[in-house]
């Protein structure tokens, strides 16, 4: 059942990228990101209110943990640009390729405090299949 939800989240991601892309085509990339964050902040505030949680800032935790918001901005800017130029499916597929690539690098070297899992050469087969898929998607 949870696996079905995971698929559903994927559907939601595509719908979100599409909505954001439409917004971007009307008001431009930076203003779109602004609106997206205003709506997002309102939504999460509502959730905190419903859960009766108070926002907190904890002292003494690594500063980089607070950079998620900055990464988020870059991510939405990049997604919006690519969506208008590449369409939804190609943007998302290339994104997944990037995710797999970086996760393999992080795993291999055990970066960012993660346990190291050496890269297995056999995985190059999977990456090649993915690449062929991406090339077919791109040239069609």
């Amino acid at each position: 059942m949870y696996k079905l939800y995971a698929i559903l989240i994927g559907v939601l991601i595509t719908i979100m990228v599409t909505f954001n892309g439409v917004l971007e085509s009307h008001i431009g990339n930076f203003l779109a990101v602004l609106v997206i964050h205003i709506v997002g902040l309102s939504s999460i505030s509502l959730i905190l209110l419903l859960r009766q949680e108070r926002p907190t800032i904890k002292k003494g935790i690594p500063l980089y943990l607070y950079t998620g918001g900055a990464i988020g901005i870059l991510l939405v800017l990049v997604n919006n640009i690519c969506f208008s130029n590449l369409g939804a499916s190609l943007t998302l597929s290339l994104g997944v390729f990037g995710q797999l690539l970086l996760s393999s690098i992080i795993d291999h070297f055990g970066l960012m405090g993660m346990k190291a899992y050496k890269f297995q050469l056999k995985k190059l087969i999977g990456f090649s299949i993915i690449l062929v898929g991406l090339i077919i998607m791109t040239i069609y």
């Binding site: 990464i71 997604n79 690519c82 990037g98 995710q99 797999l100 690539l101």
Partner: peptide, 10 residues
């Protein structure tokens, strides 16, 4: 850029 988007996601 789209691949970099994947990096940023992770």
């Amino acid at each position: 850029l789209a691949i970099i988007g994947g990096f940023l996601t992770i």
